[in-house]
Simulated scan of single mutants.
Amino acid sequence: MKIWILRQIDGGFKKDIIYDIKDIRILSGDIVLLFDSDFKYYSYDNLSISDKKRLKHYPNLADKIEFKISRSLKVAFEKSYINIDKVPLYYSISHSNNHAILAISTKFIGVDLELIKNRNFDIHMEYCFSNHQIFRV
């Protein structure tokens, strides 16, 4: 598991690498990112009530590696992190191509993980653009 914390400093962010979830202290405006491709912490019993309801509604999720990895990250964080400052935390999860990322912050947050594929759009050019536009591209 890789862990980064993005701390707001002077209108920007400073990135630090964290080696253990127990070493994280989330301050106002911080963003914590957990990234992994393993689901060693996954088990049905560790799932939240909402995730169990989701599995009941979509049973095929139980076989999806990305679902297991993303929930494993959430379980690992919730079992290890001690919220000393008692600040409310918001979560966002994304997964793609057998990897997952969990973002945690004191503010509403969204994260998106995507596999970038090399694509050839040349065959579509004549259908989407004029000759003048194609020449400029």
Rank of each mutant, 00 (worst) to 15 (best):
H57I: 01
S50G: 06
L115D: 01
N83F: 10
I21V: 15
I93V: 02
F13V: 11
H95I: 15
G110Y: 00
S28R: 15
M1F: 02
K64Q: 04
D38A: 03
F39A: 13
I31E: 10
Y44L: 04
K86A: 15
I116P: 01
F35Q: 12
S72T: 09
F121V: 10
I69T: 12
R7S: 09
I5R: 03
D36Q: 01
Y58F: 08
P59M: 05
I84S: 14
H95E: 14
D10Q: 09
S70N: 02
N60H: 11
P88V: 14
V137W: 07
K40F: 08
I65E: 00
H124S: 02
I93C: 01
P88E: 14
Y91R: 06
N120H: 06
E66D: 10
S50Y: 08
S105V: 10
K53F: 01
Y90K: 12
I3A: 03
G12Y: 12
N83Y: 12
R119F: 07
I109W: 14
I69L: 03
S96T: 14
W4L: 00
Y42F: 15
N46R: 12
G12A: 03
I5M: 02
A76K: 14
L61F: 07
Y42E: 01
N131E: 13
N120V: 09
T106L: 05
T106W: 07
I84A: 03
S70Y: 06
D38P: 11
H57N: 05
L89W: 03
I69G: 09
S50E: 11
K14M: 11
D10E: 12
R119C: 08
L55M: 05
K74A: 07
Y19N: 01
S80G: 03
S50T: 05
F77K: 06
L115C: 04
I17K: 09
I104H: 02
F39Y: 15
M125I: 02
N131V: 05
I65W: 07
N120P: 02
F35R: 12
Y19T: 09
I5S: 02
S50N: 05
Q8C: 13
L102W: 15
V87E: 09
S72I: 05
K15W: 11
M125F: 05
Y127Q: 02
H95C: 15
N60S: 10
I17W: 10
G29D: 07
S43L: 01
E66M: 11
P59Y: 04
I21Y: 13
Y41Q: 15
K56S: 07
S96W: 15
I116C: 07
F108G: 09
N97H: 14
I109K: 07
C128F: 08
H99E: 04
F67N: 03
